[in-house]
């Protein structure tokens, strides 16, 4: 199978690199690795690189494991995946509305580069491939990243860059989602939405905690120690997520819902 590659000049249609590709080194690299055109160079092997592009000759001769880099020949589509689960409807700044605004910003940025873009609003059970981003609504349900990835892979046949805008609050984690996307040749970039209410809750006393989706409630006496313990666990979860993404070369950008989307895009472009 010949990797799909295309030159960067062709990608923008105007002879410039797509900003998001520039900002997302993993994606850029992947596209260059996945290209089927002329080889432009090699680099050290990194986990996730296809073995087909390993320079075995160089490995045998110099005892170095390197991957060959090719110029892309075809533009890869970008899938904007907006998490529509119930947890996205919560928080101080309504994470779903924020995610939608961010998706609009990103879509405009990518479209301005001439890349194809698809918008998907997902929930645990359904996906929406509507073309108009403004009209999408949260679909409800529990946060299930694996199901979201499945909805993408089933609807979008051609591999591309999946830009996931989600709070990632899936107790099962990101692994299944990533594996499924990777299996179908997709590259993943995550805008991790973090809300202040989720990260630093302030309520204490006799509290009945109700989940966003499930009917389960937990009655407890929450004090300062509990809050500190929760914050510590939340921070630890954030660190694990970042580490997971770094180890697997997944694009990751943590975004706080109290920031403006423009700021986030600028932050993305200045990476």
């Amino acid at each position: 199978m010949t990797p799909q590659t295309r030159p960067y000049a062709d990608c923008s249609g105007a002879g410039v690199l797509s900003p998001i590709r520039e900002a997302l080194p993993g994606i850029t690299r992947a596209r260059s690795l996945a290209g089927g055109g002329e080889m432009t160079g090699v680099r050290d092997y990194q986990p996730g690189d296809d073995f087909r592009y390993v320079d075995w000759y160089r490995c045998a001769r110099h005892d170095e494991l390197v991957s060959r880099r090719y110029e892309a020949a075809l533009p890869l589509p970008t899938y904007l995946l907006v998490d529509g689960s119930d947890s996205m409807s919560m928080g101080e700044g309504n994470k779903f509305a924020f995610a939608k605004r961010l998706a609009i910003e990103l879509r405009e940025l990518i479209v301005s580069c001439g890349d194809p873009v698809h918008v998907v609003a997902t929930s645990a059970a359904a996906s929406d491939t509507a073309g108009s981003l403004e009209s999408i609504a949260p679909r409800g349900g529990a946060t299930d990243l694996a199901a979201q990835s499945e909805s993408v892979t089933s609807a979008m046949v051609s591999p591309g860059v999946v830009v996931m805008i989600s709070d990632l609050l899936d107790p099962n984690g990101l692994a299944k989602c990533y594996e499924r996307l990777r299996k179908h040749g997709h590259q993943l970039f995550i805008f991790h939405l973090v809300d202040q209410a989720d990260a630093n809750p302030t309520f204490t006393g006799r509290i009945r905690l109700a989940g966003a989706t499930s009917k389960v409630t937990v009655d407890s006496e929450i004090d300062a120690d509990d809050l500190a313990d929760y914050c510590r666990r939340f921070g630890s979860w954030l660190e694990q997520t970042v580490r997971y993404c770094v180890e697997r070369n997944i694009g990751y950008l943590r975004t706080w819902t109290h920031e403006s989307t423009t700021t986030i895009v600028e932050r993305l472009l200045n990476r």
Binding site: S87, M90, G91, D167, L169, P171, D195, A197, D198, P201, F203, G205, R206, I207, R208, L209, A210, G211, A212, S214, V216, T217, V218, D219, S220, I222, D223, D225, D226, D229, Y230, R233, F234, W237
Partner: peptide, 28 residues
């Protein structure tokens, strides 16, 4: 005695809260 009614708080991370409260110490 707790005289105030129990407040209901909706949280996005009930699983994290459950882990926190399950490991709450005997003393707490």
């Amino acid at each position: 005695l707790p005289w105030r009614r129990r407040q209901t708080k909706q949280v996005a991370t009930l699983w994290l809260w459950q882990e926190t409260l399950q490991r709450k110490g005997f003393w707490s």
